[in-house]
């Protein structure tokens, strides 16, 4: 295999990876996973006894997986405009997510010190909080961009 063929093969595989989307039916699967995770979180918080940290972490992961599945599934009619809007929503989610991760710890620290004298110690955001926020922003912006197109 010569170099040009190898480059073309890599380019094709790369394009395939970039264009990868789940079929539209996965949107329902994603929503179901998200709803079940939220119900599970409520049950764990209010009905089950004990700390059950493993269940909390498991439900956080399933919530993220559900939202990722929703984010990656195709629209009913997928065309170039929806692809553009999705790309825009990912770009916005990335920028807003970075700003959120940078600013939010200071906001939390400031608010907790204003509300309680002494307040909480300064702490960075966890990965779950940042990823959840980014996925939420992506899904909301994509929905809104489609509404106002």
């Amino acid at each position: 295999m010569n170099t040009e063929k190898l480059i073309n093969c890599e380019r094709k595989n790369f394009q395939k990876l970039i264009k990868f989307r789940l079929p539209h039916g996965f949107m329902t699967v994603g929503i179901a996973i998200v709803v079940l995770s939220i119900i599970g979180m409520c049950v764990r918080a209010f009905a089950l006894e004990g700390d059950l940290l493993w269940l909390k972490q498991l439900l956080q992961k399933t919530l993220l997986v559900g939202m990722l599945v929703m984010s990656m599934s195709k629209d009913k009619v997928e065309d170039e405009m929806t692809i553009t809007l999705r790309a825009q929503s990912y770009a916005i989610a990335f920028v807003v997510g970075v700003i959120y991760a940078l600013v939010m710890p200071y906001v939390e620290y400031g608010v907790s010190n204003v509300v309680h004298s002494g307040g909480e110690a300064f702490k960075d955001l966890g990965d779950f909080q940042v990823l959840l926020f980014m996925l939420m922003i992506q899904l909301l912006f994509y929905h809104n961009l489609k509404r106002f197109r």
């Binding site: 629209d75 009619v77 065309d79 170039e80 405009m81 929806t82 553009t84 489609k146 197109r149």
Partner: peptide, 26 residues
Amino acid sequence: LAKKIGVSRQTINSIEANRYVPSTVL
């Protein structure tokens, strides 16, 4: 028209309203 060229009705609406510039292919 949307069905004939394989896009959604909303895309045609956006193009007609000059809110979206279609690709060369479209």
